[in-house]
Design a binder for these strands. Structure first.
Lengths: 124, 124
DNA sequence: TTTTGACTTGGAGTTGACTCCAGGTGCTAC
DNA sequence: GTAGCACCTGGAGTCAACTCCAAGTCAAAA
């Protein structure tokens, strides 16, 4: 798969895909004899995973670490699992923060609604 | 309340508080005759609100707009409510993304757990 | 009265994560 | 064979959101 197609498929710019490769987040992308990137299915799965984790706010640094552990082989399985568990906890915490913000927003919005009703009463 | 105390209370650095004031996110902080910031209770509520919204990923630009509308008075109530509703929707979407990431992570973590069980079996 | 310590300012520097660019290569179509 | 196009590279630029710094002020303690 060419970079333009991967870009289209996952909604990441070609520049971003090249950037990810450069910093070690997507290593080992094979090339055609002409030097052009040819993304395998496995590469695509990595792209999808990275995209999903990025959208959940996982830092690039953390993802690079995970990928690096992955390519070091089976001896890092325990470490990788720990890393994923830490990520998981972070996301759970984030969700909690978002829910708190949601509650506050709902209060405020309700406040506005009441306020607007009162103004309507006055106009009558 | 002095800047150091507000900083301590809300876990934002004094630099950040001054920065927020500079860009119009915390306007009208009164000063002592000596020129030192003296945060009122209302100021503190703004700080808390801003902190909460920032932690939910609401951009500074959006918050500045809200504050600016607020200080323009009652004529902007409708606009402010719309702005809050848009923020709310963004947060709901964000929560959704995080939940998706959570599901994927849980799958992966489970995969590692199974993998580790199998290795233990082999060792027996 | 000098020192200490928390505050002030304007402006510059940093960080994370891209995003853009200039100049070059290589295949395909005319 | 040359025009067009998608790709390549290394490096520079951008953006949001801080974060740091130097030089100065002020009030209270020693």
């Amino acid at each position: 798969m060419l970079i333009a197609q991967v870009s289209e498929k996952y909604g990441l710019s070609a520049d971003t895909l090249r950037y990810y490769e450069r910093i070690g987040l997507l290593p080992h992308i094979t090339r055609t004899p002409g030097g052009i990137r040819d993304y395998s299915e496995e590469d695509c799965h990595w792209v999808e995973h990275i995209k999903c984790m990025r959208s959940a706010g996982v830092s690039i640094e953390t993802l690079v670490e995970y990928v690096s552990l992955f390519y070091q082989g089976d001896s890092t399985i325990q470490q990788r699992k720990q890393l994923l568990l830490a990520q998981r906890q972070q996301i759970v915490d984030r969700i909690d923060e978002l829910n708190q913000a949601l509650l506050k927003l709902d209060c405020k919005i309700e406040g506005y609604e009441e306020h607007m009703l009162k103004r309507e009463e006055k106009l009558r």
